[in-house]
Simulated assay, not measured.
Amino acid sequence: MAKLAGVSSATISRAFTADSLIKPETRARILALADEHGYRPNAMARSLNMSQSRLVALVVNTVANPAEGEGLDQLVHRLQARERMPLLLCCANHEDRNQLMRIASAYRVDHVVLYSDAVSIDDATDIFRSATLVVASSEPLEGRAVSDVRLDASAATRQVVDRLVDIGRRHFVYLSGRSSSHIDKQRMSWFSEALEAHSLAFDIVEHGDYSYDSGYKEAVLLLRRSRPDVIVCANDLMAIGVKDAASLLNIRVPEDLAIVGHDGVALANWEAHSITTIMPLEGMVSAALAEIIDRDPSAPAVQRVVDCVVRWARSTPELPR
């Protein structure tokens, strides 16, 4: 290819690297010649030569959850734009998650983004020994020297609680997701602390599984035996289920019942749902990408904190004028 194009082999290599310095017209001419002659660089050979595979393992629970799916969609597209190839591992329904990670580690991935709270940091670190681990699952680090991206919704949570208490709401219920979820425990803790500042606490804590069905079913059972005036849900899907359950029982939202979700998924912002939700100010995607693209692998591990904000909607009352 270098002889055909009349350039050096290094220039050929740069033409196939998205962020390399090369004149646009030179790149276009080389790529046109490559198409004409059916030439493609060998990524495996390239990885051996450069000691980089440019593979990024994304360890998630499931892509069926809109919160995970929407974030992954952004991350995958941005990785691809920087010529990093994502290797997706869905762990939720996989019996041997460690074996799944061992299979992925055989591809010598450069980075691992740990979204799943079903996989321990220690297991991921032990299996992906040659890769840089980026934790985004909110599992406590407890002194581990790994890069960490986590949410801080404490201020946004106080804003929600202060507003609802100011308009007279006193009976709060929390609908949790999986008991093993670290971020769920953190979210409930933030709300408990905000309520404690008003000498209040959750009347009841119910348990769902992050699905719409669990939000709907648990809310029907709850609302038939008690009348809370606020239900806080661990995610937006359950919050939508709670809203539909309230409609079934002729409970007015937000006049009789305020509903708050988490994650800020697009579905919650649809006109039919309009759920007040606590969401990242800037996606964890940007923070994780910075760890993958910008940080020197030899540099010390860092923690990046992503603040959250409230996206107000019609599932909570407006402040009195």
Results as ranks from 00 to 15, higher is better:
Pro66Cys: 04
Asp110Gly: 04
Ile127Asn: 02
Arg29Gln: 11
Leu79Pro: 08
Met44Ala: 15
Glu25Ala: 08
Met101Trp: 01
Asp35Ser: 04
Asp35Thr: 00
Gln52Glu: 11
Tyr39Thr: 12
Arg29Glu: 05
Asp35Val: 07
Gln52Cys: 13
Cys91Tyr: 02
Phe128Gly: 02
Asp122Ser: 06
Ser105Lys: 01
Val119Phe: 05
Asn61Cys: 14
Ala67Phe: 09
Arg82Asn: 15
Glu25Thr: 00
Tyr39Ala: 10
Glu70Val: 01
Ala106Arg: 11
Asp35Asn: 04
Ala34Asn: 10
Pro24Trp: 11
Val56Asn: 04
Asp35Arg: 05
Asp96Ala: 02
Arg27Gly: 13
Asn93Gly: 10
Met44Cys: 09
Val109Thr: 06
Ala131Phe: 09
His111Met: 01
Ser20Arg: 05
Arg78Gln: 13
Asp96His: 06
Leu31Lys: 07
Asp126Arg: 04
Met85Gly: 10
Gln52Leu: 15
Arg40Ser: 06
Asp96Glu: 09
Ser47His: 12
Arg40Thr: 13
Pro66Ile: 00
Val119Asp: 04
Asp96Val: 03
Ser120Tyr: 03
Ala64Ile: 08
Asp123Arg: 00
Leu89Asp: 05
Leu114Gln: 03
Met85Pro: 15
Arg29Asn: 07
Asp73Val: 09
Arg78Val: 01
Ile22Gln: 12
Ile22Trp: 03
Ala67Arg: 02
Phe128Pro: 14
Ala34Gln: 05
Ser120Glu: 01
Val119Pro: 01
Val134Tyr: 11
Ala45Met: 12
Val76Trp: 13
Asp117Ser: 02
Gln74Lys: 06
Tyr115Glu: 04
Arg102Met: 00
Leu88Thr: 04
Gln52Trp: 08
Ala136Asn: 00
Leu79Thr: 06
Leu88Glu: 00
Gly38Arg: 08
Asp126Leu: 01
Met85Val: 15
His94Val: 15
Val135Cys: 09
Gly69Val: 08
Tyr39Lys: 00
Leu79Asp: 14
Ala57Ile: 03
Thr26Val: 13
Thr132Ile: 01
Ser130His: 15
Gln74Pro: 11
Arg108Leu: 06
Thr125Met: 10
Val60His: 07
Leu88Phe: 01
Ser130Arg: 15
Lys23Gly: 07
Leu75Trp: 04
Leu48Trp: 08
Leu89Phe: 02
Val60Lys: 09
Asn42Lys: 09
Asp73Ala: 12
Arg129Leu: 06
Thr26Ala: 03
Gln80Met: 14
Ala64Thr: 05
Arg102Ile: 07
Glu25His: 12
Asp110Lys: 01
Leu58Gln: 07
Gly69Tyr: 10
Ile30Thr: 07
Leu33Lys: 00
Ala131Pro: 15
Ala92Tyr: 01
Ile30Glu: 05
Ala43Thr: 11
Val63Glu: 13
Asp96Met: 10
Asn49Lys: 15
Met50Lys: 15
Ser53Gly: 05
Leu79Trp: 12
Asn93Ala: 06
Val113Phe: 07
Ala81Tyr: 13
Gly38Gln: 05
Thr62Arg: 03
Leu100Glu: 10
Ala106Leu: 14
Leu79Val: 10
Ala34Tyr: 07
Pro86Arg: 11
Pro86Leu: 02
Pro66His: 04
Ala43Arg: 06
Val119Met: 08
Leu114Tyr: 05
Val76Asn: 11
Leu100Met: 08
Leu133His: 09
Leu89Gly: 08
Ala67Pro: 14
Arg46Gln: 14
